[in-house]
Amino acid sequence: MKLTLTIWRQKDPGAKGKFVRYPMDNVNPEMSMLECLDVLNESLAERGEEPVAFEHDCREGICGSCGFMISGVAHGPLPATTVCQLTMRHFKDGEELVLEPWRSRSFPFVKDLVVDRRAFDRIIQAGGYVSVSTGNAPDGNAIPVGKEEADRAMDAAACIGCGACVAACPNGSAALFTGAKIAHLGILPQGQPERDRRAVRMVAQMHAEGFGSCTNIGECTGVCPKEIPLEVIARMNHDYLYGAWRERRQVVTTIAPATDWEFGKK
């Protein structure tokens, strides 16, 4: 089949970017979207042009590396699917696809379709864990967890951190990502001791990163490859409101978002 890919090309954050049209004649409907880009890149390299940079790794929909907008929808038109598992048969012959990187102030641009999602790491760093050092654990069965609770925690824990929720949200909010981790750990008994502190600190970091606010419209869930439910955001709000009250005397600090890639400088 034939397709036209219109792709955002920009060498670095300082350069001026533009859309470039790439007509493709030999697209196999069995290919994944990323394999289609591989084929394009191969031909670009043969012509002496620089290939399109895009993030990818596992190519089975779990690592969360890949992701870009396909004609206005994060990860493309197929629900619950990352671009690496999106096969080309879901497009019509002759269709024109517009490929854009995630756009968010909190995801600084890197190159072509690649952005910097370290903000997510910093949100986890602020409290997305249970503070238990190696060797401190009691027997696995010493902490009973009801099946239903374990399942709900797993629903939230399935998040792959791809950033599609931020990309799709008209407000550029990271509420679904942050809520997913707060819900995962807040549902389980292991997460109870740090529940207030976790919510307050993660929300504070999310704020410091410059993400927008949630308006509860559900665009994030709609594009989420793992279909994380919107209720995780309610859970975050709940834990935050309780936490903000109970921890009102604590001083909460955040990390300044790093935007460059020069390591080791203070």
Partner: peptide, 11 residues
Amino acid sequence: NRAPGFWGSTN
């Protein structure tokens, strides 16, 4: 950096 409190946070 000091984080904003309840009134300053989006939530």
